[in-house]
């Protein structure tokens, strides 16, 4: 493939998804400055690998490249211990415990009311504190609106794992935001 063809392909496949790509990089790295570095590196990788894009969802492909780049970047620039420790499978298999949150007959709870009233600042701080593997799943689903299948493809885990990671990520947010009143 010629250089011009690669460029054209890159513009078609990657450029429409830069906002998505930047959003994912921002939430994996934790800030916009690092996300800029990651996105530039990811674009270079995507450009070099563009002939390997075999069709399918361009958005999922771009997000996969960004995610891989972000992990490499984190291993290089942050303590590798921190990156891997967050991913311990022990937290993955822990039981989810339910409380009824003081539900009334309609299912509305003081806890749900509290969550509904959370502002942007509270929500963003709470997301930042969620362990990485759960956080990226949450962001892909609840900020970027991808479905479970797409998230499974991007993060390279089965759909069941996506489901449980999402539940756990949300559990972290419930505890950070919904439990403040006690």
């Amino acid at each position: 493939m010629s250089r011009e063809e690669d460029k054209a392909r890159f513009e078609d496949v990657v450029m429409p998804h830069l906002t998505d790509a930047f959003t994912l990089a921002r939430w994996i790295s934790g800030n916009r400055t690092d996300a800029e570095d990651i996105l530039q590196e990811a674009c270079l990788r995507a450009y070099r690998g563009i002939s390997g894009f075999a069709g399918g969802s361009p958005r999922a492909w771009v997000l996969t490249v960004v995610r891989n780049t972000a992990y490499t970047w984190l291993m290089k620039h942050r303590s590798p211990m921190l990156v891997s420790i967050e991913d311990l499978s022990a937290t993955e298999s822990a039981e989810i415990e339910l409380t009824d949150g003081g539900a009334d007959a309609t299912g509305l709870t003081p806890e749900a009311e509290l969550i509904a009233k959370a502002d942007a600042e509270q929500l963003k701080c709470a997301i930042a504190a969620v362990p990485l593997a759960f956080r990226e799943t949450l962001v892909l689903r609840d900020v970027q609106g991808l479905n479970y299948r797409e998230i499974a493809d991007i993060t390279g885990v089965p759909i069941g794992t996506v489901m449980s990671r999402l539940a756990r990520a949300r559990r972290h947010l419930f505890m950070a935001i919904g439990a403040k009143q006690q």
Binding site: T23, R32, E36, G107, A112, I115, I127, F174
Partner: peptide, 29 residues
């Protein structure tokens, strides 16, 4: 308990939808 979990989940999803938008891409980037 499951009803409460659903109520929490829906409240959270709505709050995120309202307050946590995708990031704006810096023009210089």
């Amino acid at each position: 308990a499951l009803r409460a979990e659903l109520a929490r989940t829906e409240a959270l999803r709505a709050a995120l939808r309202e307050h946590v938008a995708p990031e704006e891409l810096p023009v210089h980037l």
